[in-house]
Design a protein around this nucleic acid. Sequence first.
DNA 1: CTACAAACTTAAGTCAATTCATTTTCCGGA
DNA 2: TCCGGAAAATGAATTGACTTAAGTTTGTAG
Lengths: 207, 207
Amino acid sequence: MAGLRERQKAGRRRDILAAAAKLFRRDGFADTSIEAIAGEAEVAAGTVYNYFESKGDLLIALVALDGEEVRAAGRSIIASPPKDPVQAIQKLLTFYIDHSLIHLSKELWRNAMANALSQPSSKFGLAYAELDRKLADQAGELIACLQARGEIDSSLDPKTAGDVLFEVVNSLFMVFVAREEMPIALLKKTLARQVKLVFAGLCPSDA
Amino acid sequence: MAGLRERQKAGRRRDILAAAAKLFRRDGFADTSIEAIAGEAEVAAGTVYNYFESKGDLLIALVALDGEEVRAAGRSIIASPPKDPVQAIQKLLTFYIDHSLIHLSKELWRNAMANALSQPSSKFGLAYAELDRKLADQAGELIACLQARGEIDSSLDPKTAGDVLFEVVNSLFMVFVAREEMPIALLKKTLARQVKLVFAGLCPSDA
DNA sequence: CTACAAACTTAAGTCAATTCATTTTCCGGA
DNA sequence: TCCGGAAAATGAATTGACTTAAGTTTGTAG
């Protein structure tokens, strides 16, 4: 009968996460205290720790929500990728980038990544790592799809190719969020250059 | 005459950094307090803040020392790279990896990276970013060198290629330090697979 | 030799995340 | 309806990074 206690618990969790989302976005991560989040959610500070292991976990939980959204949308790109393989890859990766700033600022991304890095074994640190893996797998799926159409050397391991492409976009994204002044256009331009290079490869052409 | 004050100051700085290195290595980052570092260096806690902006900066200073060492050693590899271009690249990148754990544990790397990420504009956050850039540039130099020997398509931008290769090794290194149980052999194996793929490129071979 | 200013050190704070002993709330059974 | 115990909430206490204001030390100019 989904007892009252269960429902209250789920509700509290939502309330706390919503309060955190609101305050993190409004005041930033560093300037939002647990007290403030607790106040906004109308609970005591200690209660927050019954639902989340730390302030950082709260942020990573938000990132994870965002990640699921991106991943779901990414599927539709894979379903009908552009003819040109380089464009297909660019489209998926650019999509990841464009979505990243809809819900979260650069400051929040920095702190989320920093927390995931320094606490990789916590419940939410693992969640972050898994999200990354899923997005890399998604890139791998796209590669497999392009291989099936003969656009990409079919002797290559699509998983490895997906990993490399995700590493490239993820590394560039880290630089992007680390520099408050760097415009998203520059990130995309750099990404395009690097994807082209990965596509062409380093070995001398037979020309 | 290199006034007494100057010399004392340099000495203190060295003492504090040495104390931090000792305690970080022995007890880990989280379990080492500024008080303890100050005690080991025989100064007051506040004094530490005259030399370093934060506990994280202290760690990044250690990483920077390590980084300079790696970079200097990397030059000798570039000076006489192996004949085979894939092997040359592997040798440089594998060297970075092998050096990484000589002075710093996985836990220290995680915390150093996390600090550099969350405070990218602090003095030492910038130092970390610059170190990364220098290592990426070094990879670019190697590519340029291989291009000069005709081992690599000379129409490619060596800087871009160096960036991509460094992103690959750096991303894999982050996964490596995030997983306490991951052996260095697996990291190298994965790196080898990805480097080969970047070398070959994704486009269908003309076979 | 002496007085002064700049730079340094210190120790006593402040502040906010996290913990924990205690109280309150909910549930199932008598 | 009432009771015992488990789960959850509470907020005061703890902890440790970082700040600051006051006191020292050092180099220097008169």
